[in-house]
Design a protein around this nucleic acid. Structure first.
Length: 558
RNA sequence: GCCCCCAUAGCUCAGUGGAUAGAGCAUUGGCCUCCGAAGCCAUGUGCGGAGGUUCGAUUCCUCCUGGGGGCGCCA
């Protein structure tokens, strides 16, 4: 709709002898009196055209009024705004244009097949995941889904920290638990400070007792064994959320395949490194970092940064168009130096984007649930999913922009009531399915068999309003993907559900609002509108990874 | 001290240059013989502060205040 209008405006601007601007801004005004859409072109162009804005607007308005198939009227208001009042038929055509064929929406090809390497979660396999991991996982997955439906090819990648200090620590922890466990009489052994702890470790060590015994002298081997097992439980948990990674990238492989030395060699060859105080430094400050960073420590081991450089070199060597990293905001200090590394290696750092996830506060009925990693006592993601279910869990993680802190209230998320937005949206969808069931009983075609009916019976303001909201969907997706903000889809669906529920409930007091009525043409046209609505709900819910149920059953009714 | 994020209604939050700033919850009052009441309608107050850019600023820039996070040869 907007494209049609802006093309028209550009055409008539040229007709009047003015060069149209690169982008013609069209907005949906908040006030009804300002029409269906309005534009500020006259204000923007007034200087170049050497005309007062109202004058230019008037010229345009009278030229555009000739397009009688689209416009009811064109008005000039305020300092020179053009207000367009559109005919319902324009909306009818626009509604149809959302469809590709009889049963599929037109694809949203904003990406043109661009290849995206999306790294997210990358949780250390040293313990069970908590809600923070859940947020990262869900946002990453929704972003992947969003990219896919908008014409991108996505590689979902999980970087496995299966090498280094934390694995050694994990191994030590396992050994300690093993010692405690195998001691006759169960003598209390104090766990050292720097050790992972928690019931999950106790259970896992008990399970693997016999496999740990022979390798107990080698904590690193124990750590790897435990790490592999813990990664499996992470994968199981992700599966419960409907998340499947395409690739698990092993940190160890960087060592085994010599990729770290390779990356170091490149940096050295480019003169990006120097030695000082027995360590090897990387001149990241030449690329906008606060200070230089150490690559090889005095004890001749790598910092955690070094394998990551090699990893990102490998990412770029694999050749994608965009590289996205979803990580916790507590790693924010990491962004500059990683970009520096990419630039130093001769790649374009502009292609590397970071989504920094802010904190999640777990709450229950408004009270903060305290968690302590030190004692190993915290609510795991597993328990959260057990309690609230997959749909609510996923939706709640998507209800905030990633760069705002998120309160996750367990009570609210599991409430099966109006206060819970996920049910609100699903309920709207279920109602539409119910309408189709009733319609078929009354002898109307199934949604798949509706074809492309005449839509002229759609004249109610609310019906046109629903079409307007539907027409916002493509641009919502475009904005969401452009700014990597998949949560916009969740907000859009809430808005669409609200608009529909309003329309639906009016039928209680006014038969004109009923979808299924005595006039066949009217009913079929309305069914077509509802079919489009339902399809957009399905499409959007699919991006969020939330189910679109045909009917809702309350637990209390089961 | 330096860097990043945030500040909008009583509460939780939308809104990245447009006209009279929106939802939900909470409050108060209405609506089920009806395509599903997990629903709908009605109901007041608000852009933290000071400058600047602009025809026009919640939005962009600078400073200030208040909150969160980060600043290691830890990961």
């Amino acid at each position: 709709m907007k494209t049609i209008l802006s093309n028209l405006i550009a055409k008539h601007l040229r007709g009047l002898g003015h060069e149209p601007p690169a982008e013609i801004v069209l907005d949906a005004p908040k006030v009804k009196e300002h029409g269906d859409l309005s534009s500020n072109v006259a204000l923007a162009l007034a200087k170049a055209a050497k005309l007062p804005p109202p004058k230019l607007a008037e010229q345009l308005a009278s030229a555009l009024s000739g397009e009688t198939s689209i416009f009811q009227k064109v008005e000039v208001k305020g300092p020179g705004f053009l207000n367009f009042f559109l005919k319902p038929t324009a909306y009818h055509e626009a509604l149809k244009s959302l469809w590709q064929g009889p049963n599929a929406l037109k694809p949203f090809d904003f990406g043109g097949g661009r290849r995206v390497l999306l790294e997210f979660l990358s949780a250390n396999p040293t313990g069970p995941m908590h809600v923070g991991h859940g947020r990262n996982a869900v946002v990453g997955d929704c972003l992947a889904r969003l990219l896919e439906v908008t014409g991108h090819r996505v590689m979902r990648e999980f970087y496995v920290n299966d090498h280094g200090v934390q694995i050694k620590t994990l191994g030590h922890s396992g050994c300690h638990y093993h010692t405690v466990m195998t001691q006759v009489g169960g003598v209390e052994v104090a766990l050292p400070e720097d050790v992972y702890r928690g019931k999950y470790l106790e259970d896992l060590v008990a399970e693997l007792k016999d496999r740990i015994a022979p390798i107990k002298h080698d904590p690193l081997a124990v750590g790897k064994l435990l790490g592999v097992e813990l990664l499996e439980t992470i994968k199981e948990e992700l599966l419960r959320l409907g998340i499947v990674f395409d690739h698990y990238y092993s940190e160890s492989s960087l060592y085994e395949e010599g990729k770290i030395d390779e990356a170091l060699a490149v940096l050295k060859a480019k003169g990006m490194t120097y030695e000082r105080e027995g360590a090897l430094w990387f001149k990241t400050s030449e690329f906008g970092d606060d200070k230089d960073r150490v690559l090889i420590k005095g004890d001749n081991t790598y910092t955690y940064f070094t394998p990551d450089i090699a990893y990102h070199k490998d990412k770029f060597d694999r050749g994608y168009d965009v590289y996205l990293n979803v990580m916790g905001a507590d790693h924010g200090g990491y962004v500059q130096r990683l970009k520096a590394a990419v630039a130093a290696l001769g790649h374009n750092p502009e292609k590397l984007h970071f989504l920094l996830m802010q904190l999640v506060n777990l709450k229950r009925g408004g009270e903060v649930v305290n968690m302590s990693k030190r004692t190993g006592e915290y609510v795991t993601l597993h328990e959260v999913i057990d309690e609230v279910g997959r749909d609510a869990a996923r939706f709640f993680f998507m209800m905030r922009s990633h760069n705002a802190a998120l309160d996750f209230d367990l009570e609210l998320a599991k409430q099966q009531s109006a206060e819970n937005p996920v049910y609100y949206i699903q309920y709207a969808h279920a109602r539409m399915c119910s309408i189709f069931r009733k319609a078929e009983e009354a002898g109307f075609p199934a949604p798949e068999a509706l074809g492309e009916p005449g839509l002229s019976p759609l004249q109610l303001e609310e019906e046109i309003g629903l079409v307007k909201t539907l027409l916002n969907y493509p641009e919502t997706l475009a904005g969401a993907v452009q700014f990597y903000e998949p949560h916009r889809v969740a907000f859009y669906l809430l808005d669409l559900a609200k608009t529909f529920q309003n329309y639906y409930t009016r039928a209680k007091g006014d038969d004109r609002y009923r979808v299924i009525g005595p006039q066949r043409e009217t009913t079929v046209a309305k069914l077509y509108l509802v079919k489009t609505l339902r399809e957009v709900f399905r499409h959007g819910l699919n991006i969020l990874g939330v189910s679109a149920p045909e009917s809702m059953t309350r637990e209390s009714e089961e």
